[in-house]
Design a protein around this nucleic acid. Structure first.
Lengths: 144, 144
DNA sequence: CTTGACCTTCCCATCATGGGAAACTCTATC
DNA sequence: GATAGAGTTTCCCATGATGGGAAGGTCAAG
């Protein structure tokens, strides 16, 4: 299978397949004489694995670890579970953070007349409100 | 106030203050003879406004709109409210998405023995599980 | 043999943020 | 007044996962 067929079979764009090759995550089984990438079922499965893992919010770094565990037939499931559990904790933390934002904004919006007049508790809060003490540490994102 | 003092007064890093200048979001009140940026209370307030808005998850594009509404003394609060409400809807959608991920993973993790053996329902799902039909559209992220 | 669809590599952009270099400026101390 | 150290300026680079697009090579059908 060339890259286009691999893309159709896996649901991963050709751009991404080339990227995964570049970062040594999933390398083509071989190259043709004219330098075309060739993939077989093993790689197709791994591409689908990645796609599914991305849809569950795992970062590429975590996926690298998961894929290497998958390839290791002697893996301890403990390690897989640890990665998943860490990710769940991360998700929960972010959900709580966003929930707090949404709740604050819902309250402010509720207090805003939303008419032609300029008075606005939302803007007032942005000017006077104290930002949370924990400045929302740097963290990776999902898509962008 | 020079940029360092403005940074202390607003809680925004000098890097970011220069960036906001560059994108014409908050320009210094003036420049000294030696080309140092000078800020006064108006700009400090705007920098704090931005910081607070970021902590509520608004994108820079939304903040640009919010700040321009803030500067417009004839603004209709309707417009501010519309931006906030759209953002809340966006937050809610993302929360639901992440909640679904977390729930799925919690279930899989719960089914995983997490011991020395290689059998693992988490890996099994990543290989066989169908990704959700909606491929989680591109969207901006919160922090970097 | 031409045409169109496909493949290759390479560069650029995103978004908000930080790191760091080279050069200049200010302030305090000697 | 000279010198040291802290602060400032601009400029370039990196992030993470993804897409866009150009220039040029390859393949298959007509």
């Amino acid at each position: 299978m060339n890259i286009g067929q691999a893309s159709k079979a896996s649901g991963v764009t050709t751009k991404m397949i080339r990227y995964y090759d570049e970062i040594d995550l999933v390398r083509p089984a071989s190259r043709t004489g004219s330098n075309y990438r060739e993939y077989d079922h093993r790689q197709i499965n791994e591409l689908r694995f990645i796609k599914r893992a991305r849809s569950l919010g795992f970062s590429m770094e975590e996926i690298t670890q998961l894929l290497s565990l998958w390839r290791d037939r002697a893996r301890p499931s403990r390690e897989v579970k640890a990665i998943a559990d860490r990710h769940v904790a991360d998700l929960d933390a972010r959900i709580a953070e966003m929930q707090a934002m949404a709740d604050t904004l819902r309250h402010l919006s509720h207090c805003c007349a939303g008419d032609d007049r300029p008075e606005c508790p939302i803007l007032a809060d942005l000017m006077d409100g104290k930002e949370p003490s924990e400045p929302v540490g740097r963290r990776r994102s999902f898509n962008h």
